[in-house]
């Protein structure tokens, strides 16, 4: 029983972490702060994965999101300094409308989410590495290869976009 209580406590902490950090990303005035909070949200999400028993995905999450993507975003922040803050405007003009639009759906969907019933099966033990690998290199081998092509294309595209024209 104590394990269940521990789980619930962890879940509550992680939820607070994720929601709080995400709200911080949206509301934080300093972009660097936003980026760091985003990394924290990613980290909490990895904790969620662990709570679900998906250690491999959690590891990927830490490596790719908390590591690579956060670093990329931080570079992006650094490369686009905003010296000229002529516009004190932090939010867009459509903010009230957006809030009016998003809040009802968000609340509705969140409440609706609780209606998902548990299948009532026990979590399969032994982590998710073996089943994940079996799937990726079995049924999903071809899409996996295609995904590598997508990455290659994105890499080339990013290089071409950022490359300066040499006169």
């Amino acid at each position: 029983m104590s394990f269940d209580i521990l789980q619930s406590v962890l879940f509550a902490l992680l939820t607070v972490g994720i929601v709080g950090a995400a709200a911080g990303v949206v509301l934080m005035k300093r972009i660097t702060g936003s980026a760091l909070l985003m990394a924290f949200a990613f980290l909490c999400n990895a904790g969620m994965f662990l709570l679900l028993g998906a250690e491999t995905v959690a590891a990927f999450q830490v490596l790719i999101y908390v590591g690579a993507i956060t670093v990329l975003i931080l570079y992006g922040v650094m490369f686009t300094p905003q010296q000229d803050r002529r516009y004190g405007l932090f939010f867009q003009t459509q903010t009230p409308w957006a809030a009016l639009l998003v809040a009802p759906i968000g609340i509705f969907v969140a409440f609706f989410a609780f209606s998902f019933a548990d299948p009532g099966k026990a979590l399969p033990g032994g982590g998710d590495l073996v089943p994940l690998a079996t799937s990726v290199f079995g049924d999903f081998a071809f899409p996996f290869e295609v995904a590598s092509v997508l990455l290659l294309a994105a890499m080339i595209g990013a290089i071409v976009l950022v490359k300066r024209d040499e006169e």
Binding site: T15, V19, A22, F91, Q94, F112, A113
Partner: peptide, 17 residues
């Protein structure tokens, strides 16, 4: 939690400049 996170993201896309 996923839904809340998602809609916070949506709100961010809509409101930030």
């Amino acid at each position: 939690v996923s839904a809340v996170l998602f809609f916070i993201g949506v709100a961010g896309v809509l409101v930030r400049r």
